[in-house]
Simulated assay, not measured.
Amino acid sequence: MILFIILGVILLIVSFTLKDNVSNPLSKFSTILRTVGLVVIGLGIFSSMFKQINAGQVGVKSLYGKVHSEVLESGLHIVNPLLDITTFNTQTQNYTMSAIHDEGERQGDDAIRVLSNDGLEVVIDLTVLYRVSPNDTPKILKTIGEDYSNKIVRPVTRTRIRDNAVYYDAVALYSTKRGEFQQRIFKTIEADFKSRGLILEQLLIRNINLPNSVKKTIESKINAEQDAQKMTFVLQKEKQEAERKRVEAQGIADYQQIISSGLTDKQLQYEQIKAQKEIATSNNSKIIFMNGKNSPVILSDK
């Protein structure tokens, strides 16, 4: 658009120059050049009246430094050719601060280093999910500019995390209080973002690194707890096995007590006779009576 206008002005200048120089054989084309220049300028002005705002963006109008409060939504708009239109991305954006090289927005180690309540240095990797409030884009353009990620998102996030980390011990941040800490910093950062025209969607604490000495202490504690739990399980199992054996022995003893108290000589003799009768009826045995008092001798054919 601007190029059309510049090209048209150049053609007009050339046409007037040729018109004044009658001796130049190209002077007869001055009228044509003038006409073409005017047409090109007209096309440039006409095309600059149309402004397309892409999906997920809004446009903010400004004229000679004065920012208009009206916001252009996505679509095609007819505007004053003299207006300057600044587009803002209103989709979800992320800003990552990580200790891993080439993973965050900045090269090198960009993790957040904070001091916990017990004076230990904790390294936090964090991702901020946020978006621009469309209605607040004129205010953002006037007060912050287009580089709001480095002017607001980064410093506010890092400051608020450091401010809130001092309320927690290093081990608590690493384990039991991690969710509470994330919710706490979310609320404070959300309030700061809102006052600046930004909407905080989510804070993702990707990793919390503790000093090596603290890591070893935690690992030793976890191993000791696991060993204690394992020993408790073994003792409980042995106790159950001992209880089972005691119940089994008590049952056998009770059974023997019942048998011994209930059997008489007559009953034993009767059971013996029944057994001998069953053996005598077998085809594979022979009975020899030695005398009348003793029991018969049973011989097997096999």
Rank of each mutant, 00 (worst) to 15 (best):
E241K: 07
K237M: 07
F50Q: 06
K28H: 04
Q257W: 08
S74V: 03
N209P: 00
L12G: 03
T87P: 08
A253F: 05
D147A: 03
I53W: 02
I78K: 13
G44N: 08
S15F: 06
L126C: 11
D265C: 06
N117Q: 13
A224W: 02
S30P: 02
R160V: 06
I298R: 04
K142H: 06
A111E: 11
I287W: 02
D125I: 02
F50M: 07
A228V: 02
P296Q: 00
A172Q: 09
Y174W: 05
L173E: 04
R106M: 10
T92V: 15
V71L: 06
G37A: 12
R154Y: 01
K221T: 01
K51Y: 10
V60F: 01
Y130A: 11
V122C: 09
Y168G: 03
S116R: 05
N54D: 15
V67K: 09
R244V: 08
T159F: 05
S295Y: 06
E225K: 07
V60K: 00
D301W: 00
L76E: 03
V214W: 00
D163W: 10
D125G: 04
N212Q: 11
F186Q: 12
M49V: 01
Y130H: 14
G42A: 13
S260E: 15
F233Y: 11
L7A: 14
S48I: 05
S213N: 04
S69A: 09
M97E: 13
V58D: 12
R106Q: 14
Q52L: 13
V214N: 05
L204P: 04
S48V: 08
M290H: 06
K230A: 12
Q269A: 15
Y148N: 14
T137I: 06
V39D: 00
R196P: 05
T159V: 02
I185Q: 08
A170K: 00
L76I: 07
I298S: 01
L18H: 10
E146H: 04
V153D: 12
I53V: 12
D301S: 04
Q202P: 02
T92R: 13
T17Y: 15
L126G: 05
L115Y: 06
Q91C: 07
V166N: 08
L263P: 11
M231Y: 03
S133H: 01
N283L: 12
D102L: 03
V67F: 04
I6C: 03
S23Y: 13
K151P: 10
I13H: 03
L72P: 03
T86S: 14
